[in-house]
Simulated assay, not measured.
Amino acid sequence: MVAPIDFEKDKVDLAVQFGAGNWPGVETELLFKDLIQPVCSPKLIKSARLSELDDLKKVPLLHSHYRRTDWPDWLMAVKRPDLLANEGISFPSSVLTYQAAVEGVGVAVGQLFLLRNEIQDGTLVPLFNAPFERPMAHYVAWPKQRPLGRKARSFIHWLKGQIAESLAAAS
Rank of each mutant, 00 (worst) to 15 (best):
P38G: 09
E29D: 12
P72K: 08
K43V: 11
T28N: 13
G21R: 03
D34Y: 11
D70H: 14
E27W: 03
K46G: 01
S51N: 09
G21S: 10
W71S: 09
I36H: 10
S51L: 05
P60K: 03
E52L: 02
G25T: 08
E29C: 07
K33Q: 15
L31W: 07
L56C: 03
L61V: 01
V59A: 02
Y66E: 06
L62I: 08
K43Y: 06
P72S: 12
S41L: 06
E52K: 14
S64C: 10
L44G: 05
S47T: 15
Q37S: 10
D70P: 01
P72V: 11
K43T: 13
R68H: 09
S47D: 09
N22H: 13
H63S: 08
I45G: 02
S51A: 11
D34S: 15
H65M: 12
L35G: 03
Y66D: 09
G21N: 07
I45H: 01
A48I: 01
K57W: 00
L31G: 08
V26W: 04
K58V: 00
D34V: 03
L62K: 02
K43D: 13
E52P: 00
V39A: 12
K33C: 07
L62P: 06
S64Q: 05
P60A: 06
P24Q: 11
L35Q: 13
T28M: 05
V59T: 04
H65D: 14
H65L: 13
R49M: 00
Q37M: 14
W71R: 06
